[in-house]
Write a protein that binds this DNA or RNA. Sequence first.
DNA 1: CATGAATGAGGCTTCATTCAT
DNA 2: AATGAATGAAGCCTCATTCAT
Lengths: 203, 203, 203, 203
Amino acid sequence: MTASFGSRQPHHRRDRETTRAALLAAARVRFAREGYGGTNVRSIAQDVGVDASLVFRYFGSKRKLFDEASAEDAQAAGAVLAGPAEQLPTRLLEMILHEERPESAGEHPFIAMLRSADDETIRDRLHDQVCDTYIAGLRTLASGPDADLRAELFSAWLLGIGVARSVVRSDVLAEATLSQVAPYFERVADILLGGDGTETPNG
Amino acid sequence: MTASFGSRQPHHRRDRETTRAALLAAARVRFAREGYGGTNVRSIAQDVGVDASLVFRYFGSKRKLFDEASAEDAQAAGAVLAGPAEQLPTRLLEMILHEERPESAGEHPFIAMLRSADDETIRDRLHDQVCDTYIAGLRTLASGPDADLRAELFSAWLLGIGVARSVVRSDVLAEATLSQVAPYFERVADILLGGDGTETPNG
Amino acid sequence: MTASFGSRQPHHRRDRETTRAALLAAARVRFAREGYGGTNVRSIAQDVGVDASLVFRYFGSKRKLFDEASAEDAQAAGAVLAGPAEQLPTRLLEMILHEERPESAGEHPFIAMLRSADDETIRDRLHDQVCDTYIAGLRTLASGPDADLRAELFSAWLLGIGVARSVVRSDVLAEATLSQVAPYFERVADILLGGDGTETPNG
Amino acid sequence: MTASFGSRQPHHRRDRETTRAALLAAARVRFAREGYGGTNVRSIAQDVGVDASLVFRYFGSKRKLFDEASAEDAQAAGAVLAGPAEQLPTRLLEMILHEERPESAGEHPFIAMLRSADDETIRDRLHDQVCDTYIAGLRTLASGPDADLRAELFSAWLLGIGVARSVVRSDVLAEATLSQVAPYFERVADILLGGDGTETPNG
DNA sequence: CATGAATGAGGCTTCATTCAT
DNA sequence: AATGAATGAAGCCTCATTCAT
């Protein structure tokens, strides 16, 4: 697990902002793939081609580096809330399925954070971020009885799809595209979010 | 995370098999709650009231202990496949929601294993176990186009519910009972598993 | 400053209490000579012929080791209070001059602690210990105006003698014996402690 | 101990000598308060508002900076020798009690140096400086038997008063003024320095 | 075989110091 | 010559694991 991720440059441009940004980027990848506890700062530094002590000079501690890295992730995750509310589920799905996310190793920010959930305080932040973005956003779409529960069930599905793809590496789902998944996704969204929650699908 | 789980009593029986079983049980609880990396063998031994070196004497290494412990978990998870096939989804949901699981700290075996998924080989085993039990079982219920994908999407939902409850600690879902969730669960099961997958819900 | 103090055994008897006591003894010597900050736990362990991690197993941290070591010192220092009150000054002087103190490298406990006084909390403890033993003990002997000040001035002298001997290594004083110092000592004691503080020595 | 001492303002003058002097002044304060080992060159540089690398450019190493800073201290301490010999004890006491010494954080140079006495070579220099100034000066005042010893005992007292005030922070003595201490001081000076050392106080 | 003392590699972090610009 | 980015050695501490008894 000390393998090389990305482009371990042998040398570095002597530029504070560049190096800092490179460390942050490397940290996002490492934390996303190996979790907080599974990542050591030396490997982050090696990814950038720099001495490990620079991490402490620039970020103060491994934990502060993680905080800064995941704050960027959270911001990226929160951006999905902008836009027409009725298309939110689709945007969330797109985000979960999206592969082009080099800044966090192709993993959704929440899935990345999940890997670090053995730390209690990190788990608290994960809870807050999921509630504040996913669930709160989806909750505005649901009405009727059990609206909270249904919003959470739908969020759970999105979370589960992310886990299945990037952790479990479910055979078909891991390679599935948006157009393959969308039809089923919309029907489930109708059931869990649309309507008043009492109508039966075939009623 | 040096907190005491369970009894941690001085262990006075000199019965090798009894001690071995107790270590295995303690290991399942610890690994489930704290993940592989977050668990140290000394705390497992303390839970049983014996010295840590016995773990190595009986199991060879922390890793082999984990392997044996998670093999038991996988077996427990696989037991859900026994029984009428058409009630499998409900049994799976019951299992995800079930709290009474003292042998793995109340957590579903797969969710517990997720906590350890920063190790690549552990991730491989998680993949195999999820595919061989959940997905394979659900796959027999689905027919028509995209049956594989639909079975995986449904598995993903179960996984996601487990994650939402025990990791994210989703506000409502974490406390929800089977009777609250069942209605929505069945409708989604109909869509993802039932039919040929081409019919539209309101068609 | 990583030089060998004492008898760096190459091997050790496999006995917890013996090793623990040896570490504590080595720690007292190192802390006394090099101060808290100037001592590293590896050299303490090397003095005993043992791996440095044992220090943490037995004492928890470098700081707790220091606390335990200096608690023994404080106890030794406090023992001087037992006995006839009017002979206290002489006993204090004997203690300051005493060379036979292998358990703290021949240094008086307070002088040893002085070496560590760059740490604020250690300085607080030094203050308390000096006040509670030396000053409080001497204060009972002084009466009249400025009794507190005079007791502290006399304590300061004892402290200064210790510093002069073991830190500054004052040429003559460092080698002086009790019988050489005693005459002057008693006269100063008379002035600072005896009488009501107003009489003049030749009055 | 990263607290700010003094001004810590951005330093804009490009005058080499000015910066050098400012670093030296800041170093004296830091070394006096925190000792050699407890001071880091970065904080000295920050006090002046320049980069730490200037310290190495100007002084070569932390140790050479310390040497130069303490040479200034020694010179300041030696200045007390100038003046009427018979008033030397009083001048020494004034110096020990004097608070207005911004160039070394209000601490007497020797007391400051004591803080760094865990380094063997620094201890040697402390020995030389104390002997060459205090003891040599006081020695000229003492005559009769044990003159050397008595001069050293008196020096030890001065040292001890300094330690009691600034390290131990003795309750009353730490706040005492010259006029409070002077009466007792003179009587002790008479005994330790005056006379031939053989007369008894009440004789 | 059981026990627990001891080990050593590795992790985070600090700090004096060097080196490219 | 000045600047500040980068380095590397060393310190405290944890933990899986081995070894003497």
